[in-house]
Write a protein that binds this DNA or RNA. Sequence first.
RNA 1: GCCGGGGUGGCGGAAUUGGCAGACGCAUCGGACUUAAAAUCCGAUGGGACUUUCGUGCCCGUGUCGGUUCGAGUCCGACCCCCGGCACCA
Length: 823
Amino acid sequence: MKEEYNFKEVEAQWQQYWEEEQVYKSEIQDKDEYYVLEMFPYPSGNLHMGHVRNYSLGDVFARFRRMEGYNVLHPMGWDAFGLPAENAAIERDIHPNDWTWDNIENMKEQFKMLGLSYDWEREVATCHPDYYRWTQWLFLQLYKEGLAYKEKSVVNWCPSCQTVLANEQVIDEECERCDSQVIDKELEQWFFKITDYAEQLLDDHHLLEDWPQRVKTMQKNWIGRSEGAVIEFAIEGSDEALEVFTTRPDTIYGATYMVLAPEHPLVEELVTGTDQEEEVKEFIAQIKEQDEEERTGSDSEKVGIDTGIKAINPVTEEEVPVMIANYVLMDYGTGAIMAVPAHDERDFDFAKKYDLPIRVVIQPEDEELTAEQLEEAYTEDGVVVNSEILNGLSVDEAFDKIIAYLEEEGLGQKEVNYKLRDWLISRQRYWGTPIPIIYCDDCGIVEVPESDLPVELPTDVEFTGTGQSPLAKAEDFIKTTCPECGQEAEREVDTMDTFVDSSWYYLRYTSPDFTESAFDSKRANYWMNVDQYIGGIEHAILHLLYSRFFMKFLHDQGYVDYKEPFGDLLTQGMVLLDGAKMSKSKGNIVDPLEILDNYGADVARLFILFAAPPERDLDWSDEGVEGAERFLNRVWRLVAQNIDQLKDVTGDFEITTDADKKLHRQLHVTIKDVTVDVGERKQLNTAISAIMELVNSAYKYLNDVQELNYQLLRAVVEKIILVLAPFAPHMTEELWSQLGFEDSVHQQSWPEYDEEAIKKDEITIVIQVNGKVRDKVEVAADISEDKLKELVKKQDNVQRYLEGKEVVKEIVVPQKLVNLVVK
RNA sequence: GCCGGGGUGGCGGAAUUGGCAGACGCAUCGGACUUAAAAUCCGAUGGGACUUUCGUGCCCGUGUCGGUUCGAGUCCGACCCCCGGCACCA
């Protein structure tokens, strides 16, 4: 055995072995399953450090659980539809299909070089007709249940990508992908009715105990549930009524005016023919010209206009003016509000500016508010005043009472509102899953029969780069016959948002060969849910919320038992260089292929797992990589330098000396630490440092001890190899075989630790005087408390502090510490 | 503004239940091996004062200020700073 480790040879050799022997193949067995999943990548063709981190993390968990005896499912695939393929087609004249499949082949090669333990027989690619056929099938299931619908609406349009974006894909009025300014456009679009699941998506967070709190919080904010009431305000001189949504019905007696959104549908009807008509229309036109940020940003100036119309406050029966203002949004609630300036900051600002009446209806306990003296809205709790039937009640009591009253009088009812909007899934792109819908002049919107799926993407299309989707011009694709009446009809030319593809892939992995449906319920119920899901925090809302929605829908349809797709979620931090996100445009990239070439996969994996805990951002460090290399070489030499003696060992070890005992104890401490760190705490950095300590101890033993106990040493070396195996799969495999074993190290059982071996006979007791450490003493672990108290007082350094003082209290923490309190 | 996470040596980071702060690694310094270098191995490394006592000794130290406690990086209160999310959502 050579003293120098040749990673190139060893890594290639074992990768080939794993593939040939199908070491990571998974099938249903009569034992506990464990599903480890990393978010599948877009096949850009370039492996980057984020991938290395994500997939190394997942691989450690998969290998660890396998050794623990679980039947592990660890699949990989490709989120293969999307815009970059089309751009490549335009820029480089390569068909998106060819470009994508070339990239997949490339990246798969690179993934294999990392030594990742995937069952490649389960590979899926969302752009393959065998996959998107079932994406289309899922669309049809949603359509049948009324959860997919088409509607004309104002949408976010990215002029550069020439497509519609979901609300979630718009960041600060800009396209999340290309940063172009997003504009409004009115189009007929397909939506998924995710709002039907708003309540469940929120409620079921309680099932997700192992999710990071911040992900749940982000989703909660996004769903934006608020409880309140819808209340009707009659309009003076009209049969129409205005409905408002409010979360503070308890303040209704303080509602001194109303505000409508400029787009409110009743505005036009109500002002037409009045004196204010022209003024109001001009104002609305002005507002519409403002961009979104200017108009609705939280620090935008509030502007409005009096319509001259009067409404009737349903409880006070007073006339109140109806205003139009930019601070009321049409797409939330009813697009109209009752304004309570005394108790709402926005209404207060607006009322001050336009000199509208203010009436205090909530009084705090400790001071007396008056409308004249009020300098800001009072939004806290208090006692209701000036409110007839509500007077004297608390805010909570008034809330319930007024709703009951309004419901009785037929003036309103309790209602829950959400910020969550339906999911717009239409994209005016070519490289995506075609929406399986046909338009017939007579029959209208007709679904493609399930037996006709997949609606295949035509390959013979033109990429002009003019922006219009190539599908919209593919005559052969568009022209079809109506499945219902047989006459000429046209296909839908939009494709689906790629988030639809990725909302169910985790189910497809459980039965990728299934031809009767999207997945085999029997197999899905065996493997699901995903026990450990790992990916970037950037998917906290979009992908994770959509996947949860799909899972719930499929659950409700009886296709799968679970309600939630992902049990435990680990959101890994970014890989940075000099504190900044690696990016091509900035030129601060560390190429994983270079690292693989110079150091090998085991070093790359070990460094990236050791440098920071999984959830935190990680700064790349060349020196750190060398440290990882140094450590692995140290492990290698530990075996190589002693291979002859280690190989010849027979029989079990016996512990005779103190040095033996110490090493043996360290061995069990390490096994325990690694087991807990990987299995429970998911802190792989500390798991690795525990292994490093054991290796250091083994070296110390070799250096310090004359009569080496090779039986013990062999046991230690074996265990080092086993616990290191999930992290450095290639080197450990080679070392395992060098020790004479014939089976793969990755098919061994995870070593067990013995609590008895961890116990010490002699323990160090820390002695404090008045809470400060003054001495330490070695004592037998089973020493009595009285003896210990006596002993600590005899220590030289302790005596110095006791001299001339009186011990007033003695605190003994068993096995750890004695604190003497003196005066 | 609201919500969430965080602030520990020169650096990345440990400290599991309130009980030795700084594990492990990097960097640096010293030593061994070598003709030399690399590699490797051994040792030192939070700050400070003390020099007739160089220590198994002393003082300070986990963003700031205060509190609880025999004892606080850890718990409580107030504040400062950094990162992320949301932001006129009635």
